[in-house]
């Protein structure tokens, strides 16, 4: 059973999250709150554990310890149906879109609705066309297969699929990776529009500073398995934190030393 969240309870609340793969401690005590209706952007270098953080929230990776709460409910303490119901609120845009290439676009978009038997196939197709419209794609795109789409169009379809379930919580994994700057800006604009229009709570991970500024209300930086800074997204380029400054300005020298294997 899901309970009504109390006022002031963060939509997503993470405490003491740890995850190691073998000897490598990827997440080492993450504490993070994402307030309802806001967008949080987590920045960090490649291999810093950003994707693992999202996968822990989605239940794709089991954390070693720590808690993840949605609407004040600890996912680990819920039975399977309740956990499933809470996670059904989450829409996810994967880094490479992860569209099902054996299915046409409309079925990709309406997959969640069909899987939960909420609608008939005819209704799902109509709903998919609506969702595609919200990300700037015509209904004719629904009949194409993912392999027939450009990278930017695949991202749009991925976004349509993410918001098709209602979009109460949206997670974005490197939403602009592999796109040219203009298309990246367009996708960011669509994400910001969707989040605002749907009143979603969003958590995005990226190492694209322009993207972070466009999507986020707040931002945090992940380094060494910990969040080393949190603040307003607008402060990212002038945070006063040497690690964030080195990262956002792309300086080679600074407190962050990249691990290079010789």
């Amino acid at each position: 059973m899901t309970e009504t969240p109390q006022a002031g309870t963060p939509k997503i609340r993470i405490r003491g999250l740890r995850k190691a793969f073998g000897a490598k401690q990827v997440l080492d005590g993450i504490d993070l709150d994402v307030a309802a209706g806001t967008s949080m952007v987590v920045i960090g270098g490649s291999g810093s554990g950003k994707s693992v953080l999202l996968k822990c929230i989605l239940g794709l990776v089991e954390p070693d310890s720590g808690t993840i709460e949605i609407d004040g409910q600890d996912l680990a303490c819920l039975d399977q149906p309740a956990r499933q119901a809470l996670r059904a609120q989450i829409g996810m845009l994967f880094q490479n879109s992860a569209l099902f290439d054996s299915l046409p676009v409309w079925e990709n978009v309406a997959f969640g609705l069909l899987a939960q038997h909420q609608v008939s196939r005819a209704q799902a197709r109509t709903r998919a066309a609506e969702m595609l419209g919200q990300v700037g794609l015509g209904p004719d795109v629904g009949g194409l297969y993912p392999a027939e789409l450009s990278g930017g169009m695949q991202k749009r379809v991925g976004l349509a699929r993410a918001i098709a379930g209602g979009g109460r919580i949206l997670l974005f994994d490197e939403p602009t990776t592999g796109l040219d700057p203009i298309m990246g800006a367009i996708i960011d604009g669509l994400i910001a529009d969707c989040v605002r229009r749907l009143g979603s709570t969003a958590l995005a991970i990226t190492h694209d500073m322009a993207s972070a500024a466009r999507i986020g209300d707040r931002a945090a930086m992940l380094f060494g398995g910990r969040l080393v800074w949190q603040g307003e997204a607008a402060q990212l380029l002038d945070s006063g934190n040497p690690m964030v400054d080195q990262f956002t300005h792309g300086r080679r020298d600074g407190p962050i030393q990249m691990e290079l294997r010789g």
């Binding site: 996968k55 989605l58 794709l60 996670r87 059904a88 992860a98 569209l99 969640g112």
Partner: peptide
């Protein structure tokens, strides 16, 4: 992974 996120 995407299947799991879509309740499947």
């Amino acid at each position: 992974d995407a299947l799991r996120t879509l309740s499947t």
